[in-house]
Amino acid sequence: MTVQRPDPALYAGDLFGEYYQAERPTAVRRVSLRELVPGLLTCLIAALASLWLAEHYGFPAILLGLLIGLALNFLAQLGALEAGLDFAARHFLRLGIVLLGLQLTVMDVSGLGWMPFAGLVLIMGSAFAAGIVGARLSGQGRYAGALAGGATAICGASAALALYAVIGQDRLDQARFTITLVGVALASAFALSLYPVIAGALELTDAQAGYLVGASIHDVAQAIGGGYAISENAGEQATIIKLTRVALLAPVVALVAVWLGDASQSPGDASRTLRPIWRRLSLPWFILAFLATVAVSSVVAVPPDIAEGGLEASKFLLLLAVIATAMRSRLSLLIEAGWRPLVPVFSATFVSFLAALAAAILLID
């Protein structure tokens, strides 16, 4: 079995192609299954270790996967692992995002009501703006702010991975991307521990508490789990709110692509010309496949077992992608970047919580 690496020229004008070319401007070559196995097996072992630790010690599996991946960073220097790590970071990410579409239908979103939905859009916009402001205050660029704000506003690590495919390594180095992933995982774990307690202390109703948790916690599983930790009704509300945020992944990625412009040209280049807006609105295929999966789920009733299996498979594939990304990150660049890349994440998280709390109190009975 072989995997054909396509000619980068075939991706001219394609956003994911720009990311591909920025990351690997190398000649075309065929990668055999034998070359993939060492890297994939390493990711698998690390993922199983993360899941075991998460089950026994209660830490988020994504956060543990990041830490284990960083601890195994030295293995990425082995040429035998390169192809497998590259495959996991790239393709498992795409498949994981596509499978998220099994959890959502158009009816779920439309049943939310226009006032709560408008409030949710405002919350997400506030989180995104706070990420941009936090990036500027900490000396980071708008790309770091867009990544942190988008990941916080939508669905954590999976959104960060999707947005990074649009931003590209030529505009945001992988070290700062990895730190953002760490920050998002830490913030989500902190929110899961604290937000249900705050909801109880403020004596919010189940509907208000579910809205608060679903609208502000980053990770899908943690947002839903936080809702059910309060009550059954709060869990159902949190699930609808959180999956509505996931449904907005594709529009947000498209808007970010339009806002950032062409990855192949420097923002400071006065002579640059932007591509037509329809070109910049073109999305990576896995985002389109995500939308197609949502459409199918809306028309055809997906059996609960398949939907649940799809969610578990999505979480595992994203865990493998996160581990591979962490292993490929250069620790020297992580140390050099320091704490500043975390500022946009924490500022977006704080503003997201305040906006969600205000919306829950004002808009939800």
Rank of each mutant, 00 (worst) to 15 (best):
A160H: 04
E82I: 00
P60H: 10
R245D: 09
V106C: 10
G309E: 06
F353W: 15
L48G: 05
E203A: 14
A360I: 08
R280E: 13
G149S: 12
A199V: 00
L81I: 02
L81C: 07
A229V: 00
A130Q: 11
L181V: 09
F128E: 11
A292I: 11
V299S: 14
R90W: 01
Q174W: 00
F190L: 15
G111F: 03
G113R: 11
A9N: 14
A360Q: 05
Y19T: 04
S329P: 03
H56I: 09
T26Q: 10
G111D: 13
D7W: 01
T105H: 08
A337T: 04
A54G: 12
L288E: 12
L186K: 06
G310C: 07
A146L: 15
L104S: 10
L104N: 03
R171S: 09
L51P: 00
R272Q: 10
T152K: 01
L122F: 12
C43F: 03
A54E: 02
L319A: 02
D206E: 14
L319G: 02
A355Y: 09
I224R: 06
G13N: 06
E23D: 05
S329T: 15
P25E: 04
P196N: 04
A187N: 05
L363T: 05
S188K: 08
L255E: 06
F353C: 10
R275K: 10
R330G: 04
F290M: 10
A223M: 07
W285C: 10
R136D: 08
L255A: 15
A127P: 02
A326P: 13
L248S: 13
L78G: 14
G150T: 11
L66F: 07
L137H: 07
R90N: 07
S314D: 02
Y11F: 15
R340C: 01
L318N: 03
A247F: 15
V294F: 08
A157E: 06
A159P: 02
R340N: 03
G226D: 06
L53S: 12
E82P: 00
